[in-house]
Amino acid sequence: MFKFSHCHRFTVALTHMAARKSHRLPQIAGASSSPVETAKKPRTMATGSAIKDAFAKHAEYLNNLNEKRERVVKASRDVTMNSKKVIFQVHRISKYNKEEVLSKAEDDLAAVTNQFMAKLVKELQGTDFWKLRRAYTFGVQEYIEAATFCRFCKTGTLLNLSEINSSLLALCDKSIEPLQINVLDYLLGVADLTGELMRLAIGRISDGEIEYAQKICQFVRDLYRELIVIVPLMDDHVEMKKKMEVMLQSVTKIENACFSVHVRGSEYIPLLGTDNPDFAFFGISDFE
């Protein structure tokens, strides 16, 4: 009897709970018409629209960035190709045509700056140009190599980064943040300069300009000593390390060439038929 009444009360309680739930269902079903739920629905739709607009803007930004990257790559290639022509022009230098060759090389370099570097500056000024660095760094490095090569052959000094960036300011719109070459690209270009100086030194030795070759050798040595102090502070930059290895090879080649000339010069024997009256074949005085 006790068990039956206990179960009966439990059954009645479940019946009342089921009845209360059945009464709540219409309220829940009709809850969407309440002011609170009505206010939440437009807010959800507005959030979805905002996300959609944000994605659309980001997609448009990426498309524009890719198009700009293609234009920057094209401009960088033009800078690279024409800067190489300037370097080839400088290699024609000799003690007989120095002023003529350097004048032509400077005119060619000015054309590269005003035509091709100007296109690069126009594309990159006023933007986050560091995002596109891989697209233009090789052209900038080649341009630095050509500009510093001309400066050394003319004055025997190194063109510094501030001078290069100052020349680019004239190509920029003053109301927009200008493109400025960073230190890394400058150092990479200077590292390439030593290879051209090595070729120039070997060529001057073959033409008998020993003093000029020795001047180049000392300049490249000093440059290597300066850079070998800076490179360890560059967070193990792989590209710069490779160029430092090539630079050391260039220094060694110039030193060996200058040393060989110095040693062999003391052992040099004039050719037969020389006009030197003091020359005696086999150490025997010439017969009168």
Rank of each mutant, 00 (worst) to 15 (best):
L233Q: 15
L158S: 02
G189I: 05
V261T: 07
Y96A: 13
T148N: 13
E209D: 15
M81Y: 04
A213S: 10
K98A: 10
M247R: 03
E177C: 08
S76K: 05
I228N: 14
K84W: 03
V86H: 03
K122V: 04
T148R: 05
Q214I: 03
S33P: 06
A118G: 10
E123S: 07
I269D: 05
S83I: 00
F10D: 04
S49G: 05
V183S: 05
E288H: 00
T127E: 15
V263L: 09
V238A: 09
M234A: 14
K3V: 13
S250I: 02
Y96I: 07
M45P: 07
A147M: 07
L193P: 01
H6A: 15
R71G: 07
I254V: 15
A105S: 11
A29C: 10
I202Y: 07
L25C: 08
N66Y: 14
I210D: 07
Y96P: 08
C217A: 06
T155C: 04
L171N: 09
F55W: 10
R71E: 15
C150D: 11
L193Q: 02
Q249G: 14
S260G: 14
A147Y: 09
K241A: 12
R24V: 13
F152R: 07
P277D: 05
E99T: 06
E239W: 03
Y186D: 00
I254E: 14
K253C: 08
Q214R: 10
A50L: 10
P42E: 10
A135Y: 10
E37K: 03
L171Y: 07
I28R: 11
D53M: 12
F149D: 11
A110E: 15
A146E: 05
K3E: 13
S94K: 00
R71M: 12
T113G: 02
P26E: 01
R264I: 07
T47G: 06
V112N: 13
E177A: 09
D78N: 11
L188D: 04
I176F: 11
S167W: 02
A147R: 06
K253G: 12
V220P: 07
N63R: 00
Q249S: 13
K68P: 03
S166N: 14
K21V: 15
V90H: 00
V79H: 03
L179I: 00
F55T: 08
